[in-house]
Simulated assay, not measured.
Amino acid sequence: MKKILSLVLLLCSSCIFAESKDSKDSWAYLDNGTVRIGIDRSRGGCIGFFGQSKTQRNLLNHFDEGRFVQQSYYGDKDGSNWNGNPWIYNPVQGGSWDKQPSRMLDFKVNQKDHSLYSKVEPRRWSSAKPCPEAIMEQQIKLKDNIASITFTMNYSGEDHNDERHQEMPAVFVDGALKKFYYSKEGKLVNEAPLILAEGAKAGKKGLGLGKSTSEWVAYVDDNQWGVGIYTPGTTDFTVYKALGDGTTGPDGSACSYVAPLRTFTLKKGLKVEYTVYMTIGSLKQIKSRFEALKAKQSLQEKK
């Protein structure tokens, strides 16, 4: 897993200087009275808002095109570079590092059943080349206090050789949520994430790679309240915190990052499809909801 860790550390060490300003008119939201989720249509329909309906405080970070809850895949070296750094084939849902947006192909929202669908042609992160060979879709649904997001990527490009650790998905949280927890054999584990200081290319000591046997992770505040992320069938994860200039909030330079990981190679005809669940609450509530959801899914699979 060291490959993906070195890539995301390099990514963060440079992108913290590339803030984007978005238009409020480009955002679309779903709100079921319990939770609220929002996507930025000008940046690949990426998820950049998640909060409680009553407070409408955004617990995510969308400082630049790379910092969203979104799809991003890694392939072979392609001779590209960005911001002076050698890079690889990397279609990103939100667009390129120099703010070239992905192309929205389809967008539908149904407020009655709290669902939203989008389809985009992504761009390579480094070169901004369009990626018609890696069409990405997402289907968002809200039910009670949980948001379910189904991501799909159909790849029709050339075969790649390198097996990569892939983000399932990339998740960027408000840097104010500093404490990282995961579940191991049903028990809560708290470890300090790897720290990346502004301008640094190497992280300070901390957890950079791990395994959550219960398949969920969370970022919370000092009161153990925050955001939980659950990708069924995905135990490995990579995690770090970027200090930036210290500013927190949705567009702050500081952020808390985590990504569940799966390992595979991009091959022609590959279809990637998975669902991630997100919720907001106390650590105890997050754990209880995801355990209940996992038990329900296990029963359905046995039928």
Results as ranks from 00 to 15, higher is better:
L283K: 08
F264Y: 14
S253V: 00
D245M: 07
T231R: 05
P232R: 08
L243F: 02
V227I: 15
A292L: 14
K284A: 13
A242Y: 12
E273F: 01
D236C: 04
Y240H: 13
T248V: 14
C255I: 01
V227Q: 11
P232A: 10
A295D: 15
F237L: 07
K241V: 06
Y257K: 02
S253Q: 03
S256D: 07
I229A: 13
L270Q: 11
P260Y: 04
Y240A: 06
L243H: 06
G228I: 04
K287N: 15
K271R: 15
R262E: 10
G246I: 02
G244P: 08
G249D: 10
T238D: 09
G233Y: 02
G244D: 11
D236T: 03
L243G: 00
A292N: 14
A292F: 05
A295Y: 06
R289C: 02
E273M: 10
K241P: 00
G269L: 03
S253A: 09
G233I: 02
D245G: 11
V239S: 07
T263A: 13
L243W: 05
L266E: 04
M278N: 00
L293G: 14
E291Y: 02
L266P: 01
G252F: 05
L266M: 09
T247E: 11
T248L: 07
P250A: 11
A259S: 15
F264D: 10
V239Y: 10
I229M: 13
T235R: 14
V258H: 06
Y240E: 04
G281L: 08
S288K: 14
D236M: 05
Y277W: 02
F290E: 09
A292V: 05
L261V: 15
A242D: 12
G281Q: 10
Y240L: 15
S288W: 00
A242M: 15
E273Q: 15
T279H: 07
K284H: 10
I229S: 09
L261G: 00
L266V: 01
T279I: 09
V227Y: 11
V276F: 00
I229L: 14
V239R: 06
F237V: 03
V227M: 12
I280F: 08
D251R: 12
T248P: 01
A254R: 12
Q285C: 01
L293T: 13
Y240T: 06
G233K: 03
K241W: 00
V276C: 13
A295V: 06
C255Q: 08
R289G: 00
T235I: 04
D245A: 10
V258E: 05
Y230G: 11
P260N: 09
T235N: 14
A259T: 06
K287Q: 14
K241R: 15
K284F: 03
Y274C: 09
Y257L: 07
I286T: 03
K241M: 10
T248R: 11
T247R: 11
A259W: 04
S282H: 07
Q285W: 04
A292I: 08
T238S: 12
T265Q: 13
T265M: 10
A242C: 12
V272S: 13
K241L: 04
G246H: 10
G228Q: 07
T263R: 13
G281A: 09
D245T: 13
V272K: 07
I229H: 12
T234D: 02
L266A: 01
I286Q: 09
K267H: 07
T234Q: 12
I280L: 15
T275W: 02
F290V: 04
R289D: 13
T275G: 04
V272Y: 11
A254N: 03
S256A: 14
I286C: 08
I280H: 09
T231L: 03
A295C: 09
